[in-house]
Amino acid sequence: MHHSGVLSCLVTSDYAVEAHGLVKEFGDVKALNGIDLVVPRGQVVGLLGPNGSGKTTTVRILATLLKATAGSAKVAGFDVAKQADEVRRSIGLTGQYAAVDEFLTGRENLAMFGGLFHLDKNYVATRADELLEKFDLSDAANRPAKTYSGGMRRRLDLAASLIARPGILFLDEPTTGLDPRSRIGLWNVITELVAEGTTVLLTTQYLDEADQLADDIVVIDHGKVIAHGTSSELKDQIGGDRLEITLDNPDQAANAISALAPIVSGEATMDDSRYSAPVSGGSPVLIEAVRALDAQHIGVADIGLRRPTLDDVFLTLTGHGAEEDERPEPSTSKRGRRGGRR
């Protein structure tokens, strides 16, 4: 973990967002317990954590919606507490909900938010057309937003955040509740924005989302940063992929463990007929494992490579799982459980 190192050699102008020791108390509840965070210009940082870990509170403080109890933060070089208006001029915010007026049409929504940004009317009209086109909403531009699908609303919401071409974008769980196709659509849109130079701070509960979009991932839990690094650094830390096998006959457990020992990269666990062990090297490991078991005539009911999930990150880092009570099952995690690997 190198984040303390990054902070100690801090050069202000390199960072679009920098927060130091953010604390937020709601009555007796400490939502944030000293968050340090930097987002280098032009990069995407993913804030990863379960519900209630403090992701949204952090974004709300950085977007000037909440005042921190302690600590300080600068966005685009402006102090969030003292220069709120300057911060607001530099950012776009897309929250967990599609925050558009559902009775106004897509175009009217963009015109309204452009007006509230105090932008020139002609500029707003041109920019609105451009965004509607870009986000594939041109055909629906003159329909009230309430007739839009969930994915369309999120895209309109994102378009509304972009009306003033903000250099910094806060995306608070941008794909929560979306179907897989809309998620991927939104990921593509975000990737394009980043390619154009936008700095993004993204919160998510999904490891695969952080993996897909973020250059750097900050894992938080109980209002504290518990890990920080690139996706591969984090995965290395939590041990990469796991080989998981269900045996036909639990009596062959000991045989299976010894047969697979040369293939796996760490200690194996056995729970009844379920075998699990860390591996490196990706899918070829599966073939080797099947061969090794076959040679010993060990019957296999199920075999697969499991990619690390958010739960694994949390189990490894904190010793408890990520309480994913509200988490809708994304299709990619199913793929991950069955030997798939990108």
Partner: peptide, 12 residues
């Protein structure tokens, strides 16, 4: 619906 959040994050 979160619209108030959006207004409050605008320089309006």
């Amino acid at each position: 619906r979160g619209i108030i959040d959006r207004y409050r994050a605008l320089p309006m």
